[in-house]
Design a protein around this nucleic acid. Structure first.
Lengths: 355, 355
DNA sequence: AAGACTTACACAATCGTTTATGTAATTCCC
DNA sequence: GGGAATTACATAAACGATTGTGTAAGTCTT
């Protein structure tokens, strides 16, 4: 752990060449340089050639900071996520970075740690870094949205993804969570399940509310009763999933399937079911949400709803780009809704009804 | 997918208050404002109070861009990773962002997509964003390191993590991969295994070379023969792991254990072993590397080496901070080496020798 | 009481770009 | 061939903060 250290004389840091250097070298004004490099029409083709050749030769690197200062807008894109772990957020960030860099933007990434105060600070940080836009998935504890209002007041594009405000007067990219819940539940019904339990997330997050509603609507459409006794609310960790499963199995009339709004909890449930010597899916079918990597390596493999993480990142950036293009006095509020995809795997496939 | 769109008049974007505004309001010079806010000694306590109170009242947000331009150094930290997926890099980034934000730095994140050309571009991007430092884990295909030289020439701190240059004239934070390989192999030997195969990564990456060497040295120290026939070189995907396992099991004298330099490939191997009706660890013991999340949910659970992802991120930032503090004409090259931790799980625990 | 500090602030240059506003010289149209 | 339009460039003022230098006044030393 103790760092080995060596010392060495530092050569004087070479200062990068500026537009002024180019101008001096060619005996022209800085205007000419600036415009030649940005291909302005008022510069003759011969001059442009000369300037660009010299720029290459001297390895000129534009100072984006200076440009951003002057123009009031940088090529930086701020992203706020609750955390960078698990599968979902890293994948979304992956998608965001790829799409952003294609459009010439660099992304600054912040973690709110699921904390509203931290989130406010992130906003301040990003604003003072003069970002061109902010993409955010709100923290679980955020219930006051005034800090976002400040962003709008500054005229900086703001796009929510996945976790958004209830208010739909914002730009957002979300998954159709309702549909995910509906499809998954309907699939279980189609497999012959009649008493389907639900692991529900905390209901002040829109995503979990919607998944639950999809579940309820699917039951209703199939003429099945909705039984609050079968709905378990929690943070949906593995442990809570196992606990919930234990309680459900101890009921006088236990369920024959579980649709969980998360994958970890359904994994916990799977382990509990196996511990009790029951079989999945014969005795109880399982379906989760998120399509985590581990869903395809459990035994049996777990049915789950894919959230289109990367597409979500890309769509969020696309929406941001549209916003800065259309910044002509009108502020638009758009909702992009991605369609979930149900991955049916062994944990919900009754041999009796193979498809 | 088609965005619903609403239109609304955009209120004129409020321009943020600047130091000039504060100065005008109080009838003092900008110098006073600047120095009062940065707690300079040449400003009287009464004046400082007044300035800071007004700043709060008007919700003054410093323009970091302007400051960075003037000072030549921003509060931005550039990070280049091959990609943001799996467990390792997201976790390291998580650690980096946490540590950096504590020190007042924002992190700009770039993906090289394992491509050297992309990596060069990332460097250019970060340099022109005037970052205060660059933290990088080099792409798999990088074999020319001149673009990093440019960073040093500019006098910008450069810290490598995990994947570094061979040359040790750099600042780096790495895992003791050799030790990980040694410990893991020794553990298998202690469990009674005598013919241990190795899934090796591509050998031009230092991490994989070191893990392999640890494996070889452990064999040697135990007086066991080193058999190149038992070493399989690949990208270590699940499929390649399964293929390798199949080939090894078909040998006239198959191995009784596998130490893999990655977890995915050992997972593939596990599945192949089960497909062939053999038992883990009785017929063949398995140990992986990375301590991926799935290692504790397979059956049996997989033994693996933890890479201290978050610590690595934090250590990398710490090293960067030391570098900017000590920027007094001397350029130091330090290597921080983190110690791996072997997580022994069912896949390598022979009942015969329980510990 | 003269010189040496310290305190408390203002002036103005500076970082590297962008851009509104000139100003010539050329070309074009009728 | 006179006025308009176009081409090709220069001048200089921004953008918002930092900082070396200057300058008064007050405090202290001996």
């Amino acid at each position: 752990m103790a760092p080995r250290a060596k010392q060495e004389q530092l050569p004087p840091p070479t200062t990068p060449v500026s537009m002024a250097d180019l101008a001096r070298e060619l005996g022209v004004s800085m205007t000419t340089i600036s415009r030649a490099l940005s291909d302005h029409h008022s510069i003759g083709p011969a001059t442009k050639q000369k300037v660009q050749k010299l720029a290459k030769k001297l390895n000129y690197q534009p100072n984006h900071l200076a440009a951003a200062l002057r123009k009031g807008k940088s090529k930086l894109l701020g992203v706020i996520v609750p955390y960078i772990e698990g599968r979902f957020f890293p994948s979304v960030v992956h998608g965001i970075e790829s799409a952003a860099s294609k459009a010439g933007f660099s992304v600054i990434i912040c973690q709110s740690n699921e904390d509203a105060a931290h989130e406010r600070k992130n906003i301040e940080t990003l604003l003072s870094a003069q970002v061109a836009g902010i993409l955010v998935s709100v923290a679980r504890t955020t219930n006051d949205f005034r800090h976002f209002e400040k962003v709008r007041k500054r005229g900086i594009p703001l796009v929510f993804f996945d976790r958004t405000m209830d208010n739909d007067a914002v730009n957002s990219v979300v998954l159709n969570d309702w549909k995910g819940g509906y499809q998954s539940t309907k699939h279980l019904i189609d497999q012959g399940c009649r008493r389907i339990a639900h692991f529900a997330g905390l209901q002040h997050l829109n995503i979990y509310r919607n998944r639950r509603q999809g579940y309820l609507d699917a039951l209703h459409d199939a003429g099945l009763p909705q039984d609050e006794e079968l709905i378990v609310y929690s943070d949906m960790t593995m442990e809570e999933g196992a606990d919930a499963m234990r309680r459900l199995l101890a009921l006088p009339n236990p369920p024959d399937a579980v649709f969980s709004a998360g994958d970890s909890s359904v994994l916990g449930a799977l382990q509990e079911v196996k511990r009790q010597g029951l079989r999945v899916p014969q005795d109880i079918a399982l379906a989760g949400f998120s399509n985590e990597a581990f869903t395809s390596i459990t035994e049996p493999m777990l049915t789950s709803v894919d959230q289109r993480c990367e597409e979500m990142g890309q769509a969020t950036v696309r929406l941001f780009l549209e916003l800065i293009d259309s910044a002509g006095g009108a502020y638009t509020q758009r909702q992009v809704v991605l369609q979930p995809e149900l991955f049916v795997r062994e944990s919900s496939l009754h041999g009796a009804k193979p498809k």
